[in-house]
Amino acid sequence: MSKTYSISELEFKANEIRKSIITMLEEAGSGHSAGPLGLADIFAALYFDILKHDPKKPDWDERDILLLSNGHTVPVRYAAMAHAGYFDKKELMTLRKFGSRLQGHPERTKLPGLENTSGPLGSGLSQAAGMALAMRMNKDLHRWVYVVMGDGELNEGNIWEAAMLAGKYKLNNVIGIIDRNNIQIDGPTESVMPLEDLAAKWESFGWHVLEIDGNNIEAFIDACALARAIVEKPVMIIARTVPGKGVGFMEYDFHWHGAPPDHEQAKQALHDLRTLQGRIRSEHQ
């Protein structure tokens, strides 16, 4: 994108994206809240700073690729895309409705700008590897494949098949991003199926691992810059995020993994976001 944003402007974008997520999910009446809210900072950073892309030319052949492997978090991508100018923000209110381009889980063929169809977990990293291999065959050295994964989805064997392959071929044009929010549907990840020592697992598969605060936009941008500079290995960014980030009663609570807010909850959530959870006065107070 031509315009560059300051960190505080990006933080403002992330908050706007969160408000859209709440409004969309309330209108839809179903969908996932915690993951999308937790990922808003990462998606604001991707769409307004990191990615080489053009909302007016979604199939621009020099664009960076952003794959969403954990498709249930797609409201954050839709919101970020709308705010970035891929389509009118009004369309966000069609999420999950009949005839909408914004399907409950993302479908590439429905909406320009989506790079993959996902929902069933564990396939995004393989697709990223395939795209990275194709770029290498094409001697296309100035593009990157970013792939956002959930932590719960790392239970899938397909992920580790892809991890081995990317390690084998040293796919340095793949940048993985794990949304390490420690929740999945049945509870905390470490009680459902322990993932730790997660960094050591990826390192042993031949990846360079960076661990950051995934709700810190500056840290994420820096991590991506470093990842692009590491040429000998693929890089996995373990982004520690707070599920439900920005909405007090949703934060850290796995029950919000797969639930939308009702009207009263949405009102409270938007209030939280406008006031940064009471730290500033709302314009409506």
Binding site: S126, Q127, G130, L133, M137, N158, E161, A162, M164, L165
Partner: peptide
Amino acid sequence: PDRFIEIGVAEQNLVTVGSGLAAMGKIP
């Protein structure tokens, strides 16, 4: 050899890597 990828015994990866190759215009 440069257009061949050895996936190993990993059939889920085989077809999903195929999906990624096709997404970039290859005919896998």
